[in-house]
Design a protein around this nucleic acid. Structure first.
Lengths: 153, 153
DNA sequence: GATGAAAAAATTTGCGG
DNA sequence: CCGCAAATTTTTTCATC
């Protein structure tokens, strides 16, 4: 989290493996790379310190939790300066899983998960479009997500 | 990965903790919930079996790896039927970290990470717009991502 | 910096309630 | 289905190269 650090090849292979499976044993990573588990440990700690590794998260399948609908909502504000205030209100909606401040068509671009279409409708009308600083919204419904991966170190 | 499973309150608190930190010790989760580490283990295995937990991933900060630019590219196809073929070509581009098949403005909606604006320009012109089944694209540049979280179980 | 073995910690298993 | 505790595996440390 502190200093910069330029990763080498060993770091890269370790990182790639951990991006796929955060619980790959250090001994396994060590063997694959012809180094000792101690070295693997040191490298991982350095990448954490450098802020390259931000966290280890268990990933869930939203559908299996009952969140069947995925969509993007592009938002346009009445006034650009209202951005921080609107953001705060979006933050309070747990269905808003991502938000981006963007140039182009929209001021704010969000990714949304809801249990079903009714819930999306309700969220859109009663929680989002009712935010007074919002001028207009546009919804893109996702039918499928064929690509879902992390960047290659 | 096999059968359905309706999660209860204990599963929920375990899952929420692991979404934030996949390496929270089972003993810690057990203490927080007043159960034994063995029980925590059983619950986690069940959620894995049910496909609720899909993986544990180390998350990286793309900027720290030199990927300074994040954007979305909406793609329109000449013919809707070209979708599988175009997808295959997008899959081959590691900068395309997410792709969605969407209704609305675009046929395919992608999230892209590149090292800098020049790299984005190159990717757009020489790798994406040069795919012959693509009719048009629209780029939304992300300046900031103020919300980034997982769905609440 | 890296090693490798020893120490500490966490996970997994299986018996019994 | 849960808890306990033993057995196993993994992580972490540290003296040494």
């Amino acid at each position: 989290m502190t200093e910069d650090y330029r990763i080498d090849n060993l770091d890269k292979t370790i990182l790639t493996a951990l991006q796929a499976d955060a619980r790959t044993p250090y001994a396994e990573l060590a063997k694959r790379n012809g180094v000792s588990p101690g070295t693997v440990h040191v490298r991982i700690e350095k990448m954490k310190q450098a802020g390259i590794i931000t966290s280890a998260q268990v990933m869930v399948d939203p559908k299996k939790l009952g969140y069947q609908v995925c969509c993007f909502i592009g938002i346009n504000l009445k006034t650009a300066g209202d951005y921080p205030d609107v953001l705060k209100q979006l933050q309070a909606l747990p269905e808003v899983v991502e938000a981006y401040y963007t140039t182009g068509h929209y001021s704010i671009f969000t990714k949304i998960l809801t249990r079903n279409i009714d819930a999306l409708h309700h969220l859109l009308v009663h929680q989002i479009q009712s935010i007074e600083q919002i001028q207009s919204t546009e919804t893109l419904l996702s039918l499928q997500q064929p690509i879902h991966r992390q960047i290659n170190p």
